[in-house]
Each structure stands twice: as structure tokens, then as C-alpha cells.
């Protein structure tokens, strides 16, 4: 059982109380405000939330790729037992692309338009290993085959503008896989693609991760996408993780009203013709966020008690949520 594995083995990644703030003229925007995450080797975690919930910033924080005015102001990130926040830039550079790789959202922007695909792949290998360009090229070619790119030799000689969006995203994924990383952070990698390509890519990524034992954090706003992919799901709202647990548990028995809202707003066979559920209101401004549950203004279960910040409630090994009034009837 996944739950057992998660607790028995030493976690690959452990994020504790991560706080990433953006210091603006109007005050500190608490984009990530106390996030805890744990990931076992080979595990696939879905990090779900609306835009502005801090899910992408969480991913970039792990890589140390937060640009000013953003700053990690608190917490700890341990990868394979090593403290990433205490690392020098030089050590972090060695880790990036080698042990921890990333796939971005928009494939039209991730590849440099003036460099050929082979240049961009070979440099990613040679940044971490002393290998001949010919050997690196061969490896790049092999990985392109693995991500399902036809006639890879031809594609290697292409410039990004000569390739379709789906093809570019496959190449970006291939680049992430080049050095057999132990963790891939994928930031909404299929959002910009056609639905049919989306399905293929999700399927392939899942297979590749299983095959190579790579752990994956898949950041998305789309619960439907993640349901068929992830072992576990963490739901983020306004800079905090409000609920986490195994995928089946979360989908069938959501405890947090926000998670329930997300699930109800996914179209399914039984909702055909009916009006889709939507969560009232908008994500609160992260500038004005005070004490209390950030979701209370949009929550149909909210009471006076919600003015206090709810603590973490644990149910079993991997199930946690932050809510005073959890959904009790697991009736779906």
C-alpha cells in the first residue's frame, strides 16, 4: 500500500513550513505561507489549486528559482536529507536539471528560439557530466525516442519554431528526463495543449516515472487531470495546503469544503445537462489576508470559529486537512 510505503521509507523531499513572500510596495504578498509537503521516491503528487493559490511558487521555491522581489523567508526544504536552503548557488546549480528537473507550462516559451534543439539538449547533459558531444547527442536522441518523438535525428536539428506545441512540450519533458532526475516538478505542463495531446502526454509521463522511479510533483488547477495520474493529492488555497491525502480518498471523501467545491465543479456523466457547480466569490487578495481560514468568506459552512486559523487534523497515515467544520458525510 502506498500509504505504508510513504511512511516507512525515508522521504525524498521534505518541505516544512515553507514561506515564500513577495515584498512589494504595498506590503508582503504571502504567496506561500507555511506549506508542508513530503514525497517518497517514485511517488506522484498532484498539487492542486486555483491560479494565485501559490502552487507554482511552491514548485519554484524547491528549485531555488524565485526571483526578486520574491524571497523564501522561512521554513526548510530537504532533498535526500540535504538542506536546500542552506546550499550555495554553485551546489544548487549542480542539483538543478540533474537531481531535480522541471517542466514549464508554456512550451512555446521554454525553448530558446535562436538555438537548435540539439544544442539545448546537449548543453543540459554537459552541464553536469564530462561527456563528448557525440555521446551526449546519442543520449538526447534516445530520450526523444522514449517520449514518443518520431524521426528524432531530424527533430534534433530543428529550431523550436519549426515544431508544434505538443512536440515542443515533449522535448521539454525529454530535457527534464535527460539526466535521470529523482524528482521532476511539472508546472501545468499540459494546460497549453490540445485535450488529445494532453491525455497522451500524461499517460507517457506516468509510464516514464514508473519506469525510472522518478518522483513527480504535478502542479495543476485541473482536478480531472490529476485524478488519473497522482498517488496523492495536496490541495492548496491562498498559500496554504488545506487538504492532503491519497487520490481516491480525496476524490471520493473530500473533507475540506474547498476540495468538495473543486470536485463538484468538474463536469462528469451524471451532471450532463445540469448547471455546473461553481464556488462563489474569488480568491482573496494575499496582501490583506489576516488571521483565520482564508476560505471562510466563500464557505457555506463557515461560522464565527473560522476567524481563528484552523490547525491540522490528521486522519490515518497520510490524510490531513485544515478545517473547523469538515464535510462529514462521505456520500459521493
Amino acid at each position: 500500500m502506498t500509504a505504508r510505503q510513504t511512511t516507512d521509507t525515508m522521504p525524498l523531499l521534505r518541505v516544512q513550513n515553507l514561506q515564500t513572500h513577495f515584498l512589494t510596495r504595498f506590503g508582503a504578498v504571502k504567496a506561500v505561507d507555511g506549506v508542508d509537503l513530503e514525497l517518497a521516491p517514485g511517488e506522484i503528487l498532484g498539487l492542486v489549486g486555483e491560479s494565485g493559490s501559490g502552487k507554482s511558487i511552491t514548485g519554484f521555491s524547491i528549485l531555488g528559482l524565485i526571483d526578486p522581489p520574491g524571497r523564501i523567508v522561512g521554513g526548510s526544504i530537504e532533498f535526500d536529507g540535504r538542506d536546500l536552503l542552506a546550499m550555495k548557488e554553485r551546489e544548487l546549480r549542480r542539483l538543478r536539471g540533474n537531481d531535480i528537473a522541471v517542466v514549464f507550462q508554456d512550451p512555446s516559451m521554454t525553448l530558446n528560439p535562436v538555438l537548435r534543439v540539439d544544442t539545448q539538449m546537449i548543453e543540459a547533459i554537459q552541464a553536469h557530466e564530462t561527456v563528448s558531444s557525440a555521446a551526449a547527442r546519442q543520449r538526447a536522441r534516445d530520450v526523444l525516442v522514449k517520449v514518443g518523438i518520431p524521426s528524432p535525428d531530424e527533430r534534433l536539428r530543428c529550431y523550436p519554431f519549426e515544431l508544434s506545441g505538443g512536440m515542443r512540450q515533449r522535448i521539454a519533458i525529454a530535457i527534464a528526463l535527460l539526466n535521470r532526475p529523482r524528482l521532476i516538478i511539472a508546472d501545468e505542463p499540459t494546460t497549453a495543449l490540445d485535450v488529445s495531446i494532453q491525455g497522451q502526454i500524461i499517460h507517457e509521463v506516468r509510464e516514464l516515472c514508473r519506469e525510472t522511479g522518478t518522483a513527480l510533483i504535478w502542479v495543476t488547477h485541473d482536478l480531472a487531470v490529476i485524478a488519473g495520474l497522482a498517488d496523492r493529492i495536496a490541495v492548496m488555497y491562498a498559500g496554504r495546503i488545506v487538504e492532503t491525502g491519497e487520490t481516491d480518498e480525496i476524490i471520493h471523501h473530500p473533507m475540506h469544503p474547498y476540495t468538495r467545491g473543486l470536485i463538484d465543479s468538474v463536469p462528469s456523466g451524471s451532471t450532463r445537462g445540469a448547471r455546473l457547480h461553481q464556488i462563489e466569490g474569488m480568491t482573496p487578495s494575499l496582501l490583506e489576508l489576516g488571521e483565520g481560514c482564508a476560505f471562510r468568506d466563500r464557505c457555506h459552512r463557515a461560522t464565527e470559529q473560522c476567524r481563528e486559523t484552523p490547525g491540522v487534523t490528521s486522519l490515518g497515515n497520510t490524510r490531513e486537512f485544515r478545517c473547523w467544520h469538515p464535510e462529514t458525510g462521505g456520500d459521493q
Binding site: N98, T110, N112
Partner: peptide
């Protein structure tokens, strides 16, 4: 993004 991606590759 491609500059950020280049950094993420560890260049």
C-alpha cells in the same frame, strides 16, 4: 521563460 528554464537545467 527560456532563461528560467536554462537556469533550471543547471547551466
Amino acid at each position: 521563460d527560456y532563461i528560467k528554464f536554462a537556469r533550471a537545467k543547471g547551466l
